[in-house]
């Protein structure tokens, strides 16, 4: 029990076999997710993959059809109001009380949060350059999103859940929000961010999960992912004959005359080099290139869709 408690205390989120069905459509399927406290976890996936549904289940906004989820040690289906004093939620779809001015909104929210930090509030107000006396209805989309960030950061939540927070923001505001988030995350706090915009996430995320068609296909730290997956380009001699099958860790293999390209998803410098020489005949040259998170994401999704007969399944594959 003690061991379990210690283990659970170190987790910000622990989801087990989480599923959500809407009539005949399965939005999230059997999702297991463990997010430790500290750092930023990015949930990536295309539109409609199930990111928002997952986050809503984590926040207790909707109830899972199956499975359980614990957030900061509490069952997310029965989160007490006090739990939300430690959780911040920013969503592009969340409706603000637009009839209020920012000042009125802050006055209204303050009594709810014992950890409300007025000094931090002043700092955020200066950084975000938000007008206190303007009604939220009269604010631009960017200002409203900055307002959502502000009212979710000002009470120093232990966990911040962000659902597509940068969607549709202009670059300057996006940078301001990202900077604020990075600054906040340095204080050993946890953030879960869903996005389909990889560049932003790449700067932020410590760990990334990729969700596709309701299933969590990958859950790994960004560093590990970049270390593990490389783009490999091999030049072989003219008369060399290609083998009938390739190792399972080589994904999306393509050939062009004497060149073979693939993603090695199990890259280890020495081992991969030896394996290429063993599998491919007449190897003349090997290049291992590190990949960006975006490239890894696209590659993995394409590969997944090929395997399931999706959009890219008809591409060349030897």
């Amino acid at each position: 029990m003690t061991t379990s408690s210690v283990k659970n205390d170190s987790l910000a989120i622990e989801a087990t076999s989480l599923s959500k069905r809407y009539k005949d459509q399965e939005a999230v399927i059997d999702l297991d997710l463990t997010i430790e406290k500290g750092g930023i976890y990015a949930l990536l996936g295309p539109n409609g993959a199930g990111k928002t549904t997952t986050l809503k289940m984590l926040m207790g906004i909707i109830q899972p059809s199956d499975g359980t989820c614990r957030v900061l040690g509490q069952d997310s289906s029965h989160l007490a109001p006090e739990a939300y004093q430690k959780i911040g939620y920013v969503s592009e779809n969340q409706k603000l009380p637009e009839w209020m001015t920012l000042h009125q909104l802050l006055l209204y929210l303050k009594p709810y949060y014992p950890t409300w930090d007025d000094q931090f509030l002043q700092k955020l107000l200066q950084e975000y350059e938000l007008p206190l006396d303007r009604r939220l209805k009269a604010m631009s989309r960017g200002m409203r999103m900055k307002t959502k960030f502000l009212i979710s950061l000002v009470y120093h939540p232990e966990l911040l859940v962000l659902d597509e927070p940068f969607s549709g923001l202009d670059p300057v505001i996006r940078e301001e929000c990202i900077d604020g988030l990075l600054d906040w995350s340095r204080k050993d706090r946890t953030a879960v961010i869903s996005s389909h915009d990889i560049e932003d996430v790449e700067r932020l995320a410590d760990v990334v999960g990729i969700i596709e068609k309701g299933r969590l296909e990958l859950d790994e730290s960004v560093d590990s992912l970049k270390e593990r997956i490389r783009r490999v380009s091999v030049t072989i001699s003219e008369n060399a004959e290609l083998p009938g099958s390739l190792p399972s860790g080589w994904k999306s293999a393509r050939t062009n005359l004497r060149n073979i390209e693939f993603f090695d998803t199990e890259f280890e410098a020495n081992r991969s080099d030896k394996l290429i020489h063993a599998i491919l005949p007449g190897v003349e040259r090997i290049d291992f290139e590190p990949m960006t998170l975006r490239e890894i994401y696209v590659a993995l999704l394409k590969q997944k869709r090929r395997e399931t007969g999706g959009k890219y399944g008809s591409e060349t594959h030897r």
Binding site: I61, P81, K95, P97
Partner: peptide, 11 residues
Amino acid sequence: DNEAFWITRPA
């Protein structure tokens, strides 16, 4: 409304 403001607040 799942996106109502108060739902994710300690209200």
